[in-house]
Computed example of a mutant assay.
Amino acid sequence: MDNRQFRNAMGKFATGVTVITTQVDGEPFGMTANAFMSVSLDPKLVVISVGHNAKMLQRIQQSNRFAVNILSADQQEFSTLFAGQKNIDGMIEFTTLAGLPILKDTIATIACNVVNVHEAGDHTLFIGEVTDIRLDEGEPLLFFQGHYHALNQSILSKN
């Protein structure tokens, strides 16, 4: 199989869209990511995956902390802005959670301290212990087959 076929297969898995934020020397940084998942309830752990070529890799290694900002359906512009992995100080108005810069109006934000780091192919996995959570109402921004989507208002089944 080639890389394109692998990427196409992974694109068949609908994901939420997050922006990972951290702070280094008082400056906030962010990166769009959909490689995020919960790992454990006790202790409360999550994992994010950061590519070895991403500037965010060094920043999280330096700060040893990160926040996961789960975007709402109307925050696609944040996803595209942070996909550039640039210093966004002054471009975005941040608030804070557990001393980390976070985005306003996300449907959930999770602040973490890095407790484990694992190399996995061309990415580094950061396992973070959750230190604080902020929740809001709203529908999630979704990513599927290379495009943004929102939830359909109809519910197929209730379990």
Rank of each mutant, 00 (worst) to 15 (best):
D42H: 14
N116F: 11
L81P: 02
I107Y: 03
K55E: 13
T96F: 01
N64W: 06
Y148M: 04
I92S: 04
M10D: 09
G138D: 06
Q62E: 15
F82K: 05
V46R: 08
A98T: 08
T131N: 05
G146L: 06
I92F: 06
V46Y: 11
E77M: 05
F82H: 05
D42W: 10
V39T: 10
Q76T: 00
I133N: 03
S49F: 09
Q76K: 11
N8A: 12
L81R: 08
L97F: 07
T124Q: 15
V46M: 15
A150V: 04
M91P: 03
N159K: 08
D105E: 13
Q61Y: 06
V39C: 08
A83L: 00
A9D: 06
S63G: 13
L125K: 13
Q85W: 01
A35G: 07
G16S: 10
A9G: 06
T131M: 08
A9P: 02
E27P: 01
N53S: 13
P101M: 14
P28E: 09
T21P: 08
I20R: 05
F82Y: 05
S154R: 11
L125G: 12
A108C: 03
K86Y: 03
V117S: 15
A73M: 02
K86E: 13
F78V: 04
T22S: 12
E129W: 04
H123G: 05
N64L: 05
C112S: 11
R59M: 10
G128T: 11
E137K: 10
D132L: 05
F94K: 00
L97E: 11
N69C: 07
K44Y: 06
G138N: 02
I60L: 15
K12Q: 15
V114S: 08
G128F: 06
G51C: 12
C112I: 08
N3G: 10
S63E: 07
N116I: 14
K158F: 07
Q61T: 12
L103T: 03
N8S: 15
L141E: 00
D136I: 03
Q76E: 10
C112V: 10
H123A: 00
H52S: 14
R4F: 15
E119C: 10
C112M: 09
A9K: 07
S38L: 04
Y148H: 14
Y148V: 03
V46L: 15
N53M: 07
G26L: 11
T18Q: 02
T95M: 09
M56L: 15
F13W: 15
E27V: 14
D74R: 04
V50R: 02
Q76V: 00
T22C: 08
S63M: 09
T131S: 10
K158N: 10
S157A: 13
D136T: 04
L135K: 13
G11E: 04
N69P: 03
L103W: 03
D2S: 14
H118Q: 13
G146K: 08
D42T: 11
T109N: 06
L100S: 08
M56N: 12
A67N: 11
G30A: 05
K86G: 12
D2W: 09
F13Q: 13
F13M: 12
H147P: 00
E137M: 06
S157K: 14
D105N: 10
F36V: 14
I155N: 04
G30P: 01
A35Q: 07
L71V: 02
A54G: 09
D2K: 07
N8C: 11
F143H: 02
D89E: 14
D25N: 13
T131W: 02
